[in-house]
Design a protein around this nucleic acid. Structure first.
Lengths: 419, 419
DNA sequence: AGCAGTTAGTTTGTACCTCGCACAAACTTA
DNA sequence: TAAGTTTGTGCGAGGTACAAACTAACTGCT
């Protein structure tokens, strides 16, 4: 039998994506799953189940994952011997009768994770235990327009101060950075407010200095991971993290995986258009979401409406003043949250993740801001029957979530939940 | 007695609800990969590689997937014995020397796939061979405001006429439908222009009448699958299909998987907001993308600009008139494509898929429309270094892509590329 | 106290999958 | 005709998950 040659459909120029190359050293786009990979995958999933559900016995895990108890034993036994997991005291089972279960959880004395939060002008570093506790926090400032070598020196010094407090070598270092990040190649592409960082191959630098695995990703994605591992996103399979403040950004957790576009792109929500030919944005375009839902807009409106101290207006302040009876604050808060809602609406129409965790300025507005945004979203979205949209704010301090997220990045890459 | 005679890679004889069952069997959110699942996954990936790359020898497939040749032999041998695949004539290898390779491909005489395209007022059915050929097309009309029983009768009759022409029972039936679809439960939620379909559990109905696996999804997602299996999306890992016409819609192929939100939601791009407090939309909200980039807008603008026969204006007509020298057509075409571009820009800012396949009205505008849209998108998007955005139109007739996509839905759901 | 019943965790054997090695088959080149 | 090369196929090794059977530990009933 002869086969006719397949029609080639390469109409558009198919740019060879670095990611496809990474997916296989082979030219093709298929990758079969090998036997050993399967083991790694399942080990990772068991660990993730432990994270998501807290201490659990082998039998519980087996039920949770729908697998045989012996499988779980086989997976966790080496980890216990490796002192990554520890067996807790036998807790009386809630059902009557039977041998009491021995809950398993992460060893508090297991190696920790190094975490770095890099924002324009400041470096924060810490150690994060596998249980989520934050230790050995250090902080430093750097000249945003200064010398690269000087920055690297400050970074190294701060990180060393933190890492030296660990009793054992950490599993790795996770970096969360503002700006545009190429997470595939581990470089900072641009940070608007800190030109010194432009083009910096930070992963390579840190890897060399500390001889540890290093992972970098942009700030919203670290928030997402922080939410997923230790925050409101724990155990969820689909949700988005949305950051509002001087700029707007987002990141998505889709079908149990962190979404990363090519070279770690995606989630640049601030420059999606919500007002064709609207106000001029920093980016040079018009009508970006950022022109109506970020802090600069809020300050401008506050000034226009003759608020006192318009430069220092925040969502938290508006909520407070509204609660104290200020009609003007109430109205501005309503408009602000409505504008924020539009970005979430567009996300909802696109991906239907149904669950959104807010960070940054609007998170400062607490439950009230979240509820206002939820109401606006509900009004503005085309709802499907039975669909419920949840908007939450992450109550923990901003830096903490980002740092934990940075640590979580290492964890994720270490656990190889790629598949 | 055991019923294990079915080969485990079988395309047929699997309930389309397997996804629900798999997800709902255990209360938890973790699922480990079992040994047999691994086999199924790899079998599916080999088949997908065959689809993506055309006839290939075992050795080629092994290289493509980066696995051992023996692994491929083990996978394809049962399929050849089952007459799903056939071995082609030994083709002289392009390299010099060596035993000539025997290319493998889908057996043209293997069971086919039933496909249904359901648009307001019309039913199209056909058989699709595994090689993509369309056969036994049938068409019928139905009363959009009529009786449910009458619709089911027409549907059954049309589908029977098509399916009866198959020599063997097809692997299953794929349905692509306009409107809002719950693909998990196999029901049509609403179709604005065909109230008779509201709430119809079509999958259950067809499953009962034809005793075959049935899958349903909404129209844009079928276009996406059609693009992926047989069109410009072939072999790609990330792209979006965008439909424009009376309404707007989209669907996404992300990391080698069709994106489906809960209950098959997602991709309702038409009602994302591009103009806060803009024109009133059919959905009751304001400033939806649909109010500026769908055909009703184009007709209204044509009328406002005193075009002749404004009711019949389309992208294809604008391109033709612009090519003939009409400045007015050129200008309107430019504004139309710019408005279409905004939706793609927002998608790009959100997911960075970098590749977009256009369908529907703008696809009628051919390469010129695609190029105009690409230029607008390039201007309106915040580009990352090295990022290239590709916009293509699917040149094949609209119905054909949707029908092939509907068939591809069956294929996808039974190849279990879930992981 | 003693026994049945229940649940947790382990031991043992089995089935399945991929891989590396060796080998036959088939073709090209010198 | 011999050497070299590539394809495709047995066969055993190594790794993984599963099922059955077993021990351990606890509850409840007699």
């Amino acid at each position: 039998m002869k086969f006719e040659s397949q029609p080639s459909y390469s109409l558009g120029q198919r740019t060879p994506a670095s990611r496809e190359v990474a997916a296989g050293e082979n030219g093709g786009n298929v990758t079969l799953v090998s036997q050993s990979a399967l083991g790694a995958i399942n080990r990772g999933r068991v660990l993730q189940a432990l994270y998501d559900n807290g201490p659990k016995s082998r039998a519980d895990l087996a039920r949770l994952a729908g697998v045989n108890r012996t499988t779980i034993t086989g997976i966790v036994q080496p980890m216990i011997e490796d002192q990554l997991l520890v067996e807790g005291d036998a807790s009386p089972s809630d059902v009557k009768g039977g041998k009491p279960a021995r809950p398993l959880y992460f060893n508090p004395d297991a190696p920790m994770l190094g975490a770095v939060l890099l924002l324009p002008g400041t470096i924060q570093t810490c150690l994060v235990a596998l249980t989520g506790e934050i230790k050995a926090v250090a902080k430093a400032e750097f000249d945003t327009h200064g010398d690269t070598e000087a920055f690297i020196a400050v970074m190294t010094e701060t990180l060393t101060a933190t890492l030296s407090q660990a009793q054992q070598a950490p599993f790795g270092i996770g970096v969360a950075s503002a700006g545009m990040i190429d997470s595939d190649n581990g470089t900072i592409l641009t940070v608007n407010l800190a030109p010194v960082l432009t083009g910096l191959p930070l992963v390579a630098i840190l890897q060399e200095r500390f001889s540890l695995p290093v992972v970098i990703d942009h700030h919203p994605r670290a928030l997402l991971v922080g939410d997923r591992w230790f925050g409101p996103g724990r155990g969820q399979q689909n949700f988005a993290a949305v950051y509002t403040g001087e700029v707007l950004g987002g990141a998505f957790f889709i079908d149990g995986k962190v979404y990363r576009g090519l070279a770690g792109s995606g989630g640049e929500l601030g420059h999606s258009v919500v007002q064709i030919d609207g106000a001029l944005c920093n980016c040079g375009k018009h009508g970006c979401w950022e022109t109506v839902a970020a802090l600069p807009w809020l300050r401008k409106e506050a000034a226009r409406l003759s608020f006192p101290h318009p430069k220092s207006v925040t969502c938290a302040r508006l909520v407070k003043e509204a609660d104290e009876g200020s009609k003007a604050a109430e109205e501005l808060l309503d408009r602000y949250t409505r504008n924020v809602a539009f970005g979430i609406v567009n996300l909802q129409q696109t991906l239907s993740l149904n669950s959104y965790v807010l960070h940054g300025d609007v998170a400062g507005g607490g439950l009230k801001a979240a509820e206002l945004i939820r109401q606006h979203v509900e009004q503005l979205v085309v709802k499907r029957p039975g669909q419920e949209i949840s908007i939450t704010v992450n109550g923990i301090g901003e830096g903490h979530t980002a740092l934990r997220g940075a640590a979580g990045l290492v964890l994720s890459s270490h656990l190889k939940l790629v598949i």
